Amino acid sequence: QVALSRTQVCGILREELFQGDAFHQSDTHIFIIMGASGDLAKKKIYPTIWWLFRDGLLPENTFIVGYARSRLTVADIRKQSEPFFKATPEEKLKLEDFFARNSYVAGQYDDAASYQRLNSHMNALHLGSQANRLFYLALPPTVYEAVTKNIHESCMSQIGWNRIIVEKPFGRDLQSSDRLSNHISSLFREDQIYRIDHYLGKEMVQNLMVLRFANRIFGPIWNRDNIACVILTFKEPFGTEGRGGYFDEFGIIRDVMQNHLLQMLCLVAMEKPASTNSDDVRDEKVKVLKCISEVQANNVVLGQYVGNPDGEGEATKGYLDDPTVPRGSTTATFAAVVLYVENERWDGVPFILRCGKALNERKAEVRLQFHDVAGDIFHQQCKRNELVIRVQPNEAVYTKMMTKKPGMFFNPEESELDLTYGNRYKNVKLPDAYERLILDVFCGSQMHFVRSDELREAWRIFTPLLHQIELEKPKPIPYIYGSRGPTEADELMKRVGFQYEGTYKWVNPHKL
């Protein structure tokens, strides 16, 4: 086992960053958080920038500027975001240094004079007029057009580079997404736009490419001749908990499936790229999406959770019991969808996408189930092999396979070949997804960000279904809070070829 401390991990990262040409360590950078008073800024962006600063992973002359409508001070920003920093008493001095680099400007999102004030403020910072500028839009999409237009007109660096990070949702359907994309691309070049999907920053999602293309053993079996089906799962054990009003506007397909799960599907299904260059990788992902037809209604199961009468606390409440959810809402909190990649490698292999709230566990994984062994000599005792990439929690890679049961006879039983990170790298604290992705933006690497043509294809696949749901308002199937979801989803999976045995229990190697 390799035991690495946080300091050692960050030392390795620093070495990698400083050796590259793309990370300008000594240049002045300004990180501007648009929507600095909001939840995302408070819980994710400010803490992430602090962790990067604490670990010495930001360029040395980096300033952080918050911008929002609320009249706040840096002290206010500190008060609301610091509880999420997880700072230790030993880091007190470092924390003071961090907040000394912070400033805040209040202004409207659609007022040109406010942006001119913001620009004057940035120019007044040390070497601010020639600094590289990175704008993070932690804002609702309704203000994107006004904000990007004003940034472009008043706040661009004339000497350094300018980059803009856009948070999902990128529209509600193909038409609104196209409108937003066309607007942003009329102001910024594609190499300046970073559409963030934080799932692409997760260690195991990034590991998929290495697993596939750096190991000879997987190449020959990664196709329709050997793989019976692919299941991509995202499960949350909690409901909307008072935030249903926002969720109800989008629903589970827009929230998770059309982005996170579809991105994971691309990494499983794509061909080997010409290189690890950002556009070479994204070219292959677009090719996969172009091979997927629009979702067919007979390959869809929609569910909505109801309270568990035997549960406790939140578990007793259904989705419609959330006071922020519109009365009688038919918005799905669970969806199972089957897609097919219609190309030579994957023809006929079902890709089953499942996601839901208020389920029995927290889990995100990719599961490849292989065909049955031909010419069975073990009297149907063999179960199908599976390769599982567990994204969260407890990152893991393992192969479910058959071995001989101890004893006199040739009785096979299920076991696993474990390729888990935790076994080799004991207690290594890896940077989280937002840390990686923000560092990628500083480096100018777009590999783990969504390109406009990729986004367009993703919406093309799901828009007809979303429009049909909005028009017909089908009643989702009720499922109990804390269950596996509607049984109809299991029946759909069985119908397209997935075999669920229920006889195997994964042993978490992190707890051995």
Rank of each mutant, 00 (worst) to 15 (best):
K363F: 09
R362L: 08
Q499N: 11
K511H: 10
E342R: 06
K475M: 09
K426S: 15
T324D: 14
C355G: 11
D255P: 00
V450E: 05
C443Y: 08
I292A: 07
T316R: 05
E284P: 01
M493W: 08
V507W: 12
C443G: 10
F351M: 04
P464L: 04
E344T: 12
N508K: 12
K494I: 12
F409H: 06
Q446E: 04
E435M: 12
D347H: 14
G502M: 11
G348S: 06
Q499V: 08
P476S: 07
T331D: 03
F498Q: 15
K475E: 09
N299V: 05
S275M: 07
V366S: 01
L492R: 01
E365C: 06
G375S: 15
V325E: 03
V295W: 03
F442P: 00
R384P: 15
T324H: 12
H260W: 15
F410E: 04
A374W: 12
Y504H: 15
C355F: 06
G444V: 00
N385F: 03
K405P: 15
I377F: 14
Y434A: 14
L339R: 00
Y504M: 13
P412R: 06
I477C: 03
Q258R: 13
G444E: 04
G485L: 01
D418V: 05
P393L: 01
H260G: 15
D372A: 03
G485Q: 05
T331F: 00
V450S: 15
A364M: 07
R384L: 03
Q258I: 15
H510G: 13
T333S: 07
P412S: 13
Q263A: 14
N308Q: 07
A332Q: 05
H371N: 10
I438R: 00
K473I: 07
P309T: 10
W459T: 14
F409I: 12
E361R: 13
H371D: 07
S293T: 10
K405V: 15
N394V: 10
N427E: 13
A374R: 11
D255W: 14
L466H: 15
V428I: 05
N423E: 09
R436G: 14
T331S: 13
S278K: 04
N385D: 14
A358V: 00
H448P: 13
T503P: 08
K400I: 07
K357V: 07
R451E: 00
Y421R: 13
H371P: 00
V301N: 02
Y421H: 15
D440K: 05
L289P: 01
I377P: 07
L387Q: 00
S415K: 15
M408N: 15
E294M: 13
E413R: 13
C291D: 12
T324P: 07
I389V: 08
G407M: 07
P478E: 07
H510W: 11
P486W: 01
T333W: 01
A364Q: 12
E501T: 05
L320K: 09
D440N: 05
D322V: 08
T399K: 03
V288F: 05
L265W: 00
F410K: 06
G375M: 15
V496L: 13
V306P: 02
V325K: 07
T333F: 02
D418W: 04
Q381T: 04
D283S: 11
K473A: 05
S278R: 04
P406V: 15
V397T: 15
G497H: 13
D283W: 06
A364F: 05
N259K: 06
P393H: 05
V286E: 08
Q296H: 12
R362G: 11
P273R: 00
L492W: 05
F442I: 11
N298P: 09
Y500A: 14
G318E: 03
L439E: 04
Q499H: 05
D279H: 11
V507L: 06
A335N: 02
Y340G: 11
